[in-house]
Nucleic acid binder design. Structure first.
Lengths: 234, 234
DNA sequence: TTAATAGTGTCTCTAAGACAGTATCCG
DNA sequence: CGGATACTGTCTTAGAGACACTATTAA
């Protein structure tokens, strides 16, 4: 008997897509209504089975899940982790290769029956398979990576303000940051460039200056270590 | 036709096991002579196909690759990345879930036809499939993680000296570290504890004090940021 | 004007870098 | 003793934290 004559597991790709809504203190994750059994009609991570005769690579499978091509400048996409066991899916041994995406409000992926749900409102029992665990791993990855990189830039639109960027860091890290140290640090790196003022109707105080990410900082994510602001009780 | 009636990829687990030999300026990786076609007899990463009817989880598959149970206190084992495409294996669509292990000289895994090869001497053309790329990803992961954690502890035996630990960091990071800053930092964390002096015959200068890792630091890897020693041309 | 938000200047304090100095082994 | 390696003390320096200050808008 050849090495390959074993029963093969089902292989899926699942996507954890996070975005950050204005005035929200937690991330939102994209869920879709399942169109097939099991758990027909339940909200779950968008995903699909790898089509060996159609997809050339795992990234092809990612692309197929979202109908349109992912624009790599607006998105951040990385492989998260692979979950595999005999019991994570009642249909039999299955492997799910989970991907993590960080998207801005400007470039939310269009997906049928997709909704963004506040991660703070999720409970394990609402979500089928091990998708709750996958989401928790993704949150941990985003938090970890944001503590030493410029990953939170991907939550922001093409142009953004420094207070918006600081807020993205604070939401993801779950702690307040020292404002002057934050600005010194961000501006001290070659990450972003000022694009001047943009008229923003609903603003109360002094209007903030707008910035955009330098192209290099989106491709080669910068190393930025963030530390909590002890004064503000982090 | 059901969602699951597609052709299923072959699913493998491959292991990148690194260790650090004394007096070596680069890591060594465990390779084994392949016992089956393709590439029969060639050195490749140890690995195997997931047995859906025998393994309950991916970790079970890892365990099966090494005949004996992995001792989690001596080993560091983590999932690295999953490689999947139609062309990485001539036998058809395949997925390989790669794991990274860091082991000390004291606890090298016993594996038939296994040899440790200096990673500096590897070239892509020597190594079948995409295993060269997997090894490079593993090296990058070890380097990255060592720059902000105590991962290099796992390269060392149960008791070790501070110069040995510094050398492990320096080899992995590929840069010299400032000795006084290194010692201050390591000793300032609750990572290791002194166990006194141990007689070491072949030593030339002053004998170093021995330490062991605290249990907590092996389970919950500590955060230690290492910076180069500019004086020594890092 | 006040309230609200954006942004700066500067002092303090922590920890990293430099490096000379001391300690303890072997031969 | 000298050479080798291990370790310490301390001055300098870079950068984070604290926080009071100024700037610019809406109402």
């Amino acid at each position: 008997m050849s090495q390959l004559d074993y029963v093969r597991p089902n292989v899926f790709v699942d996507m954890v897509v996070f975005t950050l809504f204005e005035n929200s203190q937690s991330l939102h994750v994209l869920l879709v209504k399942r169109k097939a059994e099991p758990f027909l009609g339940t909200l779950a991570l968008p995903g699909g089975i790898v089509h060996a005769n159609e997809d050339k690579s795992l990234e092809d499978t990612c692309q197929r899940i979202f109908k349109e091509k992912l624009n790599s400048n607006a998105f951040h996409l990385e492989q998260l982790k692979t979950f595999g066991s005999s019991d994570r899916d009642a249909r039999g041994w299955s492997v799910s290769i989970a991907y993590l995406a960080v998207v801005s409000q400007e470039s939310l992926p269009v997906i049928e029956d997709g909704v963004f749900v506040d991660v703070a409102s999720l409970s394990a029992s609402d979500i089928p398979f091990d998708h709750y665990q996958i989401i928790q791993e993704a949150l941990a990855r985003v938090k970890d990576k944001s503590s030493y990189s410029s990953l939170p830039l991907f939550f922001l639109n093409k142009t953004f303000t420094l207070p918006e960027l600081q807020n993205a860091y604070e939401v993801v890290l779950g702690m307040p940051l020292n404002i002057s140290a934050f600005r010194r640090k961000i501006l001290g790196q070659d990450l972003i460039e000022e694009v001047g003022f943009i008229n923003d109707k609903n603003s109360r105080g002094r209007p903030a200056s707008f910035y955009r990410a330098k192209n290099s900082s989106l491709h080669d994510m910068g190393r930025v270590v963030m530390l909590p602001d002890s004064r503000r009780g982090g």
